[in-house]
Design a protein around this nucleic acid. Sequence first.
DNA 1: TTGCGAGACTCAGAAATATTAAT
DNA 2: TATTAATATTTCTGAGTCTCGCA
Length: 573
Amino acid sequence: MTELVNLPKKRKGESTNWWEEDELDDFSIQKWKSLEHHGVIFPPDYIPHSIPLFYDGEAISLTPEQEEVATWWSSVIGTEWETKEIFRKNFEHNFLKLFTSDHKIKSLDKCDFKKIAEYVEAQREIKKARLPEEKKQEREAKQKIDEEIGYGIVDGKREKISNIIVEPPGLFRGRGQHPKAGYIKARLRPEDITINVGKSNLVPKCPVPGHAWKNVVHNSYVTWLAYYKDPELSFSNVKYVYLAASSKFKGLNDKLKYEKARKLRGLIDGIRSDYFDKIKKDNQVNKQLGTALYLIDKLALRVGNEKTEDEADTVGCCSLKVSNISFKENYQITLDFLGKDSMRYFNTVSIDPNVHENLKKFVEGKGQDEELFDLITTSSLNEYLKTFMKSLSAKVFRTYNASVTLQMLLAKFNNKKMQVEEKVQFYTDANREVAILCNHQKSTPKNFEVQMEKMQDKLKDKLESLSLLETHLKGFLSKKIAQNADKKLPTSEENTRKAIVRAKTSVKNMEIKLKMKDDNKTIALGTSKINYMDPRITVAWCKNNEVPIEKVFPKALRSKFIWAMYTEPAWEF
DNA sequence: TTGCGAGACTCAGAAATATTAAT
DNA sequence: TATTAATATTTCTGAGTCTCGCA
């Protein structure tokens, strides 16, 4: 068989790859024995431009601190953030705090950022107009720094670090209706950073003279190299600095995740009959547990933890509200809610009659804003899952169902003679099914309609020239070529026939392309590929069907899934 | 006994950037 | 062949899940 994947060959005396080692249990307790790295990189300092802000027509000169924040706002002007109510309100509140109470600046509405916005725009233009040579130099300088600082050494092995530059200051952009959108993210200093290194390894040097790390710890039970928290944003989460997806830390956990989902495959029949039992039980708590798990399993919903007031109001299965569900004929329900990242889940499905009956009962006598599953929590649901398998939790069902769906769809492939492009198409169609199952969406690309029209026009042109060729052929057959003796048309019958075949393929390809573009308009294919579908299914399928792996996994995914590249063609999930 | 928050990790789509195709 | 437009890929950082320990 042709070599479809370039795999590193093992040399004599070289240590084995982690995925060939037998230390999975060990990893679950201690993550490393030695850990060495260079700490983190701070984004460049702010360079003031001294352009004033106009307030009530009067030029106000700003301190560098005020100016930096004003410049962030200026770069938001013209985007939808500018008019987003919460964003605007929070920004105003926090911006005004930068001025003393007797300062004349009292309202965002009266602030005129025009001059600063012009400056921001000019800077953008300058950046855009960089010569290819300049861009290349910049890229190389970046790579050099990355090469020097962007790697750590874990148990003697050099590993790439993912987010080595700490997050730059700016305006917090929450997703959906985030109550804190528009708050100011502070500039981080070394005093905000906690470093994790091996006890006998060198502590990374603090890159800012006269400053020091907040803390240095030696915690070998975690995989993070550093962490920090915005000192100003009380609601913000801790940010960790981790190794990149290609590392052993990430790869091993990833492999374990898929192995867990495979274990679930072996248990799924038992689990399903158990939750159907519960669905029919008298006990209301059990009824809710069974019903919720049914939805998680069938519709690949997230479990839906409780959220605080400082977060956008989104839900998952256990936090569904009465208002999110409506009942239809023939045991159908419609679920309509905002899920993770405030992405809308909107789906009408037929469900089991018992489940339908239960859900109707759960809703009875409750207000629109009350919880559908009021007697259970995400913890109690996960506890129930633990009775089947020690490490089972709700999210495993998403991984399991995504992988099983992909494998089932790919198994339908039966035309090895197809062109590689068509095979990739087939794979993408399967990928899309999974993405739809997991509700992975993206916003419609800019200019989508215009692009579609352009393609439609092209298709029309192609169809026209095809029909022209066909009449031309008829001309040959009836020996009446003279009337359409166009100089561009083939001069022989044989060539006309060939041209018709070519034109037909071209039309077909255009139609496929058009359909694909439309089908993928709002579907995000990447998320399921990166996080849900066991990569070994893809690798095995590619090997079976002579599809080069780089046609479906770009470089980053091939290194993330390096452990899966050795999968045998006969492998099954 | 449970409920709650800290902690650590996975998983999200948008935006930025790189590559490829079209003109 | 050089621009420009479209598309593919990577980066960025926000938003989830889930476990654990403590009151």
